[in-house]
């Protein structure tokens, strides 16, 4: 099921970086958790968008494997 929403929480760290806690939600409301670090100047939204694209690919592959029994 494709991701339809996400929620991002950012926390500052001693090294100046931010830790992002991202909860993605698919159209069934299932949650997928990811965390990653970024520099304060980073475009967090673009990184989250990229992760969402990758997650969609992963979920599609998993769905396919489940269907074919792999």
């Amino acid at each position: 099921m494709p991701i339809v929403a996400n929620n991002v929480e950012l926390g500052s760290q001693i090294d100046g970086r931010l830790v992002a806690v991202v909860r993605f939600y698919d159209q069934d409301g299932l949650e997928y958790l990811q965390t990653f670090s970024v520099s304060p100047e980073a475009n967090v939204k673009s990184i989250v968008d990229e992760h969402q694209i990758q997650l969609n690919v992963t979920l599609a592959e998993a769905e396919y494997m489940a269907i074919i029994g792999g």
Partner: peptide, 11 residues
């Protein structure tokens, strides 16, 4: 240096 990757990209 500025790694933003995931530790595990699947469930």
């Amino acid at each position: 240096a500025l790694w933003t990757g995931l530790l595990n990209s699947s469930t």
